[in-house]
Amino acid sequence: KCTICLSMLEDGEDVRRLPCMHLFHQLCVDQWLAMSKKCPICR
């Protein structure tokens, strides 16, 4: 589950894993990281 948009991560979707190993939709986390340089879970 992407904790930014709260939707399930589905096969075939573009996802991004951060160095902390948390996984998000690529678009969601890219937009998040443009505003904050910290993982939305770890922050």
Rank of each mutant, 00 (worst) to 15 (best):
L6G: 14
C28F: 02
R43G: 15
E10S: 12
C39V: 02
L27D: 14
G12A: 08
C39I: 00
C5A: 00
V15R: 08
E10T: 14
L9K: 02
L18R: 03
S36T: 11
P40W: 01
D14K: 13
C28H: 04
M8F: 14
A34F: 06
P40C: 04
L33M: 13
C2K: 03
I4P: 02
L18E: 04
D30K: 09
R43Q: 15
H25L: 00
K38E: 12
E13C: 10
D14C: 07
I41R: 11
C42A: 03
I4V: 04
V29E: 05
L18M: 11
H22Y: 00
C39P: 08
L33N: 07
W32V: 13
E13K: 14
A34Q: 09
D14Y: 02
S7W: 02
D30R: 06
L9N: 09
T3F: 07
K38D: 15
Q31T: 11
L18P: 04
S36V: 08
D30F: 05
M35L: 11
V15G: 08
Q26N: 12
D14L: 09
L33H: 08
H22G: 00
A34H: 06
L6E: 15
V29N: 04
D11Y: 05
R16Y: 07
L6A: 13
R17E: 11
C2P: 03
C20A: 01
D30H: 03
I4D: 05
L23K: 15
S36R: 07
C39G: 03
M21C: 09
S36L: 08
T3D: 07
R16C: 14
Q31L: 03
L33F: 08
L23W: 08
E13M: 06
C39T: 05
Q31K: 15
R16L: 08
M21F: 15
I4Y: 09
C42K: 02
L6N: 15
E13I: 04
D11S: 07
R16M: 10
E13Q: 10
K37Q: 15
Q31P: 12
C39A: 02
L23R: 12
Q31G: 10
G12D: 12
L23T: 14
E10Q: 10
I4S: 02
F24L: 09
R43M: 15
I4Q: 03
H22W: 00
H22P: 01
L18F: 10
D30G: 09
S7R: 15
K37G: 11
I41L: 11
H25Y: 00
C20L: 00
F24C: 11
C20V: 00
C28R: 02
C5L: 00
M21H: 13
L6C: 14
L18Q: 05
V15F: 11
L6Y: 06
D14Q: 13
T3N: 12
K37A: 10
V29Q: 03
L6D: 15
G12I: 04
Q26A: 13
R17K: 12
Q31D: 05
C39E: 05
F24M: 13
K38M: 11
V29P: 03
H25N: 03
L27T: 14
Q31V: 06
D14E: 10
L18I: 03
C28M: 01
Q31S: 12
D14H: 07
A34L: 10
T3Q: 15
L9S: 02
S36N: 15
I41V: 11
W32P: 09
C39N: 05
F24N: 03
C28E: 00
D30C: 04
L18H: 00
C5E: 00
V15H: 05
R16W: 08
I4R: 02
M21K: 15
